[in-house]
């Protein structure tokens, strides 16, 4: 342990020595912080661990996922445990996709100044500003396609000077697009029918009766269904 290369990071202004090579999240844990909230999958998928930091000697205010970014010597770190953001309530069955529903529920999208700060803040490298521009035009399809990989970490929202809650806007757009504009894929309809007809009932029953160990080994040996290319289409 003593031969390990150590670096200095500043967590909320206080200096800590941590081993080189840790992620920001692990560096903070090494320094004694414990995450009860603001940490999830630790694999870059859940979006819970939004973090803000500056690198040594840089003016740039950087944003990332704490579980995906390596701590560097001289970094100033702070975890963003939660981004307060209004998520509007709506009944998806009662929306009119012919109108700009996004402007109704999130009228603040029209305050966008095209500063592009959201895009620069996005750890998923999405073109956030451009999907907000599409949202102003009521283009559900474009918002959905551009925001598809959003993990809802909220960093765009935390950085936005127009106080837009981008990720909730995008989620509403994807829901509308999915429900009203996107064709239901054939294989999904087929599978739903099979489930309804009880095709998998017997198998589920078998799984239910397995012991934990049997389940584990069945999981490891499972077949992953291959979907032939070209079968999944959004048209």
């Amino acid at each position: 342990m003593s031969e390990e290369k150590m670096i200095t990071v500043y967590i909320m202004g206080k200096a800590y020595q941590v081993p080189f090579g840790l992620t920001i999240m692990k560096a903070m844990e090494y320094a004694g912080y414990r995450f009860i909230r603001g940490s999830g999958c630790r694999a870059g998928f859940c979006g819970a661990c939004a973090t803000v930091y500056r690198k040594k000697g840089e003016y740039k205010f950087r944003t990332a996922l704490a579980c995906q970014t390596t701590a560097e010597d001289g970094m100033y770190l702070a975890q963003l445990p939660f981004v307060p953001a209004n998520r509007k309530e709506y009944n998806i069955n009662e929306l009119d996709p012919e109108k700009n529903v996004l402007s109704e529920y999130y009228p603040e999208i029209n305050r966008c100044v095209s500063c592009n700060t959201c895009t620069k803040a996005c750890p998923q490298e999405l073109d956030v500003m451009y999907y907000i521009q599409a949202a102003i035009r009521g283009d559900y399809r474009q918002v959905s396609e551009l925001s598809f990989d959003c993990i809802q970490c909220g960093l765009c929202t935390a950085r936005c000077p127009a106080e837009i809650t981008h990720y909730h806007v995008a989620q509403l757009a994807r829901r509308i697009y999915g429900k009203y504009q996107l064709k239901v894929p054939e294989h999904l309809e087929k599978r739903l029918k099979e489930i309804e007809e009880g095709k998998f009932d017997e198998e589920i029953e078998r799984l239910k009766n397995m012991s934990i160990d049997e389940l584990k080994s069945a999981y490891v040996q499972r077949d992953i269904e291959k979907i032939p290319r070209g079968e999944v289409s959004d048209e």
């Binding site: 100044v113 095209s114 500063c115 500003m129 521009q133």
Partner: peptide
């Protein structure tokens, strides 16, 4: 991108000219 529809008329505002 949307230009903002109205011009920012103040002497000191830069942000609204970005769009």
């Amino acid at each position: 991108n949307c230009c903002g529809a109205v011009s920012s008329l103040t002497a000191d505002d830069v942000m609204h000219h970005v769009a």
